[in-house]
Simulated assay, not measured.
Amino acid sequence: MKKLFTMILCVIMVLSFTACSRKSDNTRIPNPFLDCKTLNDAEKIAGFKVKAPDKIPEGYTENVIQAIKGDLVQIIYKNGENEITFRQAKKGKEIEDISGDYNEYDEKSTIVIGDLEVVIKGNGGKVSNALWTNGDFIFSITVTPGEVGIDKTDMIHMIESIS
């Protein structure tokens, strides 16, 4: 009886170790962004010239430059916990939202800035997301956290300053 009990206990322990040692199926997609020291480095990785904003709202400073090989450049400007992310990507066959912003906003409209039609989204009169195309490129500006947003005038100045 003692041998049977010991054998059953051993089987239970082996099964529990096997169950605990199984690999979890938490497969994650690797981060495609490469950190860059300069905008020039990002342009070389992405394969195109970047038209970044010259005007950023007061208090925000350039913090991170990143690129995806042959595809996209992003510049992140920080002000404390708040961020503004500028992205530029090559336009494909379809116009896609490159912002990475999946929040839902109460306000959405299309405004005209020069020759550009810009879709802006936000809440409470503040703009948290702008998306537009120009030539062979898609551009986006996203403010996070989304509930903060920036004044529409500041967003327009940023877009106008992209050369």
Rank of each mutant, 00 (worst) to 15 (best):
N103A: 12
K108H: 02
H157W: 02
L131C: 03
K152C: 14
D54P: 02
E147A: 06
E117T: 13
K55C: 00
E96Q: 13
K126H: 05
I29F: 14
K3T: 13
S99V: 14
R87Y: 11
A130Y: 03
G149H: 12
I8R: 15
I75E: 14
S128P: 10
P30N: 10
K91F: 09
K2V: 08
G125D: 03
Q66R: 15
L34I: 13
D136T: 09
G149Q: 09
T85H: 04
V143F: 06
K44P: 00
P32I: 02
N123D: 12
I111P: 04
M1K: 09
K51T: 11
E81Q: 13
N63W: 01
V11Q: 11
E160A: 06
R87S: 15
F17R: 03
I68V: 11
K152W: 11
V127K: 05
A89F: 11
H157K: 12
G70T: 11
V14K: 00
R28L: 00
V112S: 01
I84M: 10
G149S: 12
I12K: 00
D71H: 06
N31T: 14
N134W: 08
K44A: 05
T110P: 01
K93C: 13
T85D: 12
S161A: 11
R28M: 00
V148D: 14
I68G: 03
K90L: 15
T144I: 02
T6L: 15
E160P: 13
Y77N: 11
N134P: 10
E104P: 00
C36L: 08
M158Q: 13
K91T: 09
G70P: 08
C20A: 14
E107Y: 05
W132M: 07
G59P: 03
L15K: 09
K152M: 15
E43D: 15
I141E: 10
V73C: 00
N79W: 03
M7G: 11
M7N: 09
F139W: 03
E160V: 14
R22A: 15
Y60R: 06
F17K: 04
N79F: 06
T85Y: 10
N123P: 05
N123L: 08
I84E: 04
K91Q: 14
E62Y: 08
G47I: 04
G80A: 15
H157M: 10
F5T: 05
T153S: 09
I156M: 15
N79Y: 06
Q66M: 14
G124D: 05
